[in-house]
Measured scan of single mutants.
Amino acid sequence: MQNSHSGVNQLGGVFVNGRPLPDSTRQKIVELAHSGARPCDISRILQVSNGCVSKILGRYYETGSIRPRAIGGSKPRVATPEVVSKIAQYKRECPSIFAWEIRDRLLSEGVCTNDNIPSVSSINRVLRNLASEKQQMGADGMYDKLRMLNGQTGSWGTRPGWYPGTSVPGQPTQDGCQQQEGGGENTNSISSNGEDSDEAQMRLQLKRKLQRNRTSFTQEQIEALEKEFERTHYPDVFARERLAAKIDLPEARIQVWFSNRRAKWRREEKLRNQRRQASNTPSHIPISSSFSTSVYQPIPQPTTPVSSFTSGSMLGRTDTALTNTYSALPPMPSFTMANNLPMQPPVPSQTSSYSCMLPTSPSVNGRSYDTYTPPHMQTHMNSQPMGTSGTTSTGLISPGVSVPVQVPGSEPDMSQYWPRLQ
């Protein structure tokens, strides 16, 4: 039975679970980093996980050691009161100082060594604690504590007292930064006198190289990059290397530039699409467009005044059976039934097929058609009795279509119309 579990990581490298990497692998990681390889490249070359490479390099940059820390136990506290007071002093002298600059000053002034120097995250935590204590304490208590930490007896009751030896409130920041720059020169002199001055200088240079600022491109470089971006948004590694040799930039910087440029292009394309949609959409909808001609068919113009009344309900007709019959029939052209047409008796099958359309009241044959006459024609229609054979009435077949029909004066039988409509 094995005491430890061995495995293979996602890159194909072998590791022992819970145990640190061998010293030979750690040394190779540092050597590759000094030669300029990126952590992701080191991870692929040595088949070590990216997190492990970053952790080893980060500890090497901070402490200069590649040895693993002790497994188990607690780390001794490195942010001692003396170190905290120095950090507060540096922050007062130059409020814009960075944590890694404070760390360098602690090393250069001999406050800490490589073994007990606090990390950048520890210094940031100390600065946050100082800021929170400043908010919790009152103004007087804060000034007393700062005077105690600074070891001075001057008056701290006013704002300019934060910067000793100065009279203009805006000047101390520059003086403090100048003092810090002077301390940086002392850093070089002190570290050069040490035993491991060369190694420390190499480590600091490598650290500065990794902690780079934003790349500033010249106009020629920007023009070359934009020209390549117009050709393709995704250049391959050969195109990037050719462009890197042409404009004297690292291939990694060119790759990052193209990634950022593609993101910018997507944002601009989104804005262009929004403007295009806004320009195509009308600002207001016309009133006429809300009524579609496919839904509402136009009603033909009436030929006679009587045809303006298109349904039985508008003429005072309360018989719903006839109203439904007229509205359900398709529109037909106007025609006239003459008196000489043969009077065919209704076929029983045809009569039964339209039995649902006729009223059940037996008085329908005896009703006159003056009910369908509009009010303004009552006088004219009353002067001509319906009993004469020459009287013409208008029957409504569908809305908007008038059918003048000659009705025999002897017997106005409704059943004569249905064979004609089939």
Rank of each mutant, 00 (worst) to 15 (best):
R67G: 07
R77A: 01
R69G: 06
T25A: 08
V83A: 08
C40W: 01
N150G: 10
G64M: 03
V120M: 12
R38W: 01
P118E: 02
C52K: 00
I71L: 06
T25W: 04
N50G: 06
K145C: 10
S49T: 15
F15T: 02
C94P: 05
P81T: 08
K134G: 11
D104E: 14
Y61D: 06
R128M: 00
D140Q: 12
G36K: 04
W100G: 06
Q89W: 09
G58I: 15
L127N: 14
N9G: 03
K145S: 14
V84F: 02
T63D: 01
E31Y: 10
I29K: 02
C112F: 05
V14I: 09
L149T: 15
V84I: 09
G138A: 12
V84E: 04
D144L: 10
N114C: 13
G13N: 01
P95C: 08
I71T: 13
K86Q: 08
E101H: 07
Q2K: 15
K86G: 08
L127D: 03
R26I: 02
Q10N: 06
T80K: 07
N124I: 00
F15A: 03
C112S: 11
F98K: 10
E101Q: 15
R19I: 05
G64P: 00
T113N: 10
G110T: 14
S96P: 06
G18I: 00
R77Q: 03
P118Y: 03
R19L: 05
A70Y: 06
D41I: 07
S54R: 03
N50V: 12
S24D: 08
R128S: 05
V83I: 08
R105P: 02
R92I: 09
I45F: 08
L32N: 02
G18Y: 00
K28H: 06
V16C: 12
V48N: 04
R77T: 06
F15N: 02
W100E: 03
L146G: 15
N114V: 13
G36F: 04
L107D: 09
S121P: 06
E82W: 14
K91M: 02
Q136V: 11
I71Y: 08
A88M: 07
N50R: 09
N9A: 04
M142R: 12
D104Y: 08
F15P: 03
V78Y: 01
A37D: 04
Y90G: 03
D104Q: 14
D144E: 12
G12F: 04
P118G: 06
N116V: 10
S85P: 02
D144P: 12
S121K: 05
W100S: 07
Q27V: 13
N17E: 01
P39E: 04
S74W: 03
R19S: 03
P81D: 07
V8L: 07
I102A: 04
G141W: 12
I102G: 04
P39F: 04
T113R: 14
R59D: 05
I123M: 03
V53N: 02
E62A: 15
K134T: 10
P22T: 02
D23R: 08
S108M: 13
A37L: 12
I66D: 00
S108K: 11
V126G: 02
E109A: 12
Q27G: 11
Y143Q: 12
L107M: 14
Y60F: 15
C94M: 12
V126L: 06
G7L: 10
I42H: 01
A79V: 07
G12K: 03
